[in-house]
Design a protein around this nucleic acid. Structure first.
Length: 558
RNA sequence: UGGCGGGUCGUCCAACGGUAGGACAAUGGACUCUGGAUCCAUUUAUUGGGGUUCGAAUCCCUGCCCGCCAGCCA
């Protein structure tokens, strides 16, 4: 993500380059990625990760990983390891700079006492409800708290007793003393500390007061010597507060810069909403291959390179936008096309008997592993009298533009032989249950010596050698571009987002494929082996389908 | 209706006072032992109105539209 598709710098990199040029912070670049450990990383977070880590990398700087764990009621250790794994998967390294906001609780407390001594923070006894009433509204100024004029000594005494656990949860807060009539509601004496008796995943019961985000975050950045603090656009009107705390304390002052978060069509990108569909069992978990989470994409077979390519293409700006899922799919195909080994896999098998091929014979044919990459070499694939082809590669009464197998017609079996359909078997319902074909021995390898052409080439698998597997087809999780445009976004879930196919027939090489490594099943799409199994058979996830021009032809006829 | 931030092809991003360009998508064609990939071509945009200027997407004024903010969440 050096720059965007145009070769021009995004506004953040412009700022960074200017700061380096002007020698700000001695030309030092130090960023941080500050996740709250309360959910899994999704591709929207990946945009932030690639901005934070990517920019540090590009400009010879450092990026810290810091868990922003200031709210023990929402956070959980289980997410800490998962988040670290996702960042590593993207290819980033925080070295020995793994931090937790909770590491700084003592220092933050000391800074708070300093604010009290300066007369810019006070202990307020108003209840949460009262605070709300005093705050005013968007159009009306707030009113000063009756506790706003307490003396420094009284505030200090009260704050220390808050810390000592003398007061019940929620009974008091420490607030910044700024301006209750500020048009920016964030500046209307925001809370700095709340009383909360909840065991913290790292500090246990050491604290019963916890700092609020606005107060904690700027301090965390300052303590770590962060030069550029990137965050999403909704924090823009928190920036005056970020700056205020730092200025009051007179400590190292990082620059907060906001950019637009990523939205994608046909999905949702909020931890809360993703958590909801996990909890409701709409998907199998955070790593369900339909989820926009990094663990979901990974399980589906998407590579970090594809994700990073995508992120590089969408750019970095302030205006809110919704990127077309088709672009992500393009990036995935583009990446996989170049790297993936090809395999023959028949998803909906139709048995073909080649009547002039000896019953007891098996021969070995050489297949190209990847036409895009000669170094990928070749492999041996067995051929025999009975094979499977894709059911929809045969049409008894062909569409006028159909180029595959038809009664009496000839087609090429990929890298094998020309075959001609000479008969078909049907059950009592008239459903085709098998085909009888003849092959031309002279076309071995797939070329005819007489130069005659066939209209199409289809894939196949030797019946006797096939690996029987379950294949799961995934589609977009939601049926509408913007699920949040309706009241009940759960109602727009795409009922066809998952399709289980049993009895799929894969060529023998499939058995040797590693879990999670995507391959291209020619003419069908990209697939990878899932960690799970079904009835002793392997399960394959479809990463993404190949572009399907045939489907488009049919669609455009309607 | 208070504040802050935004409005450029269908979508995303450029153009930083000097020819509005790229990518994806779409459409048409070429090629092809994957109806894949590749290649070529085509369609489509500066939020309205005023100004400043030789010249405005860009600067100014003024409408309009969109997003965010009234947690003791982050």
């Amino acid at each position: 993500m050096t720059n965007d598709e145009n070769g021009s710098l995004d506004f953040i990199r412009e700022i960074v380059e200017r700061d380096i040029k002007e020698g700000k912070h001695g030309g030092r670049i130090h960023t941080r990625f500050p996740p709250e450990p309360n959910g899994c990383i999704h591709i929207g977070h990946a945009k932030a990760i690639c901005t934070d880590f990517g920019i540090a990398e590009e400009y010879g700087g450092l990026c810290n990983l810091r868990f922003d764990d200031t709210n023990p009621v929402k956070e959980d250790v289980e997410f800490v390891e998962a988040i670290k794994e996702d960042i590593r998967w993207l290819g980033y390294d925080w070295g020995n700079r793994l931090y937790f906001a909770s590491d700084y609780f003592e220092q933050m407390y000391l800074y708070a006492e300093e604010l009290i001594r300066k007369g810019v923070a006070y202990v307020c006894d108003l209840s949460a409800e009262e605070v709300r009433q005093y705050r005013g509204t968007l159009t009306e100024p707030g009113r000063n708290s009756p506790y706003r004029e307490r003396s420094v000594d009284e505030n200090l005494d009260l704050f220390r007793r808050m810390k000592a656990g003398e007061f019940p949860d929620g009974s008091r807060t420490l607030r910044a003393r700024i301006d209750m009539s500020s048009p920016n509601i964030n500046m209307r004496d925001p809370a700095i500390y709340r009383i909360l008796r909840k065991s913290h995943h790292r500090t246990g019961d050491e604290w019963c007061i916890y700092p609020m985000y606005d107060y904690a975050h700027c301090l965390e950045d300052s303590i770590e010597g962060i030069t550029h603090s990137f965050c999403s656009i909704e924090f823009e009107d928190h920036r005056p507060l970020y700056d205020w705390f730092l200025d009051q304390l007179g400590i190292f002052h990082p620059q907060q810069i906001e950019f637009a978060r990523l939205n994608l069509t046909y999905t949702v990108m909020s931890k809360r909403k993703l958590a909801m569909i996990v909890e409701k069992g709409v998907v199998s978990g955070w790593d369900d291959p339909r989820m926009p989470t990094l663990s979901g994409l990974r399980r589906r077979g998407v590579t970090p390179e594809a994700v990073k390519d995508f992120l590089g293409r969408i750019g970095l700006a302030k205006r809110d936008s919704t990127v077309d899922m088709a672009l992500l799919e393009y990036c995935i195909r583009d990446d996989l096309n170049r790297r993936c080994m090809r395999l023959m896999g028949v998803l909906d098998p139709l048995k073909v008997t080649i009547e002039n091929y000896p019953e007891d014979r098996t021969e070995t044919l050489e297949f190209t592993n990847n036409p895009e990459d000669e170094s990928a070499g070749t492999r041996s694939v067995p051929f025999s009298r009975e094979i499977y082809i894709e059911r929809d590669d045969f049409q008894e009464e062909p569409h006028r533009k159909f180029k595959r197998l038809v009664p009496g017609g000839e087609v090429r079996l990929r890298y094998a032989y020309y075959i001609r359909c000479v008969g078909l078997e049907k059950d009592e319902d008239g459903t085709v249950t098998g085909l009888v074909c003849t092959y031309d021995p002279a076309t071995r390898g797939g070329d005819s010596p007489d130069g005659r052409k066939v209209s199409g080439t289809i894939h196949w698998v030797s019946a006797r050698h096939a690996v029987n597997a379950r294949v799961i087809l995934y589609d977009r999780l939601f049926s509408v571009e913007n699920p949040l445009s309706v009241d009940d976004f759960i109602g727009t879930i795409n009922d066809d987002s998952l399709e289980i196919l049993d009895g799929c027939m894969l060529e023998p090489a499939a058995a040797d494929m590693e879990v999670g490594v995507p391959v291209q099943c020619e003419r069908k799409g990209y697939f990878c082996k899932d960690p799970g199994t079904a009835g002793g058979r392997t399960v394959w996830n479809r990463t993404v389908a190949l572009r399907d021009t045939w489907k488009k032809i049919l669609r455009n006829e309607d």
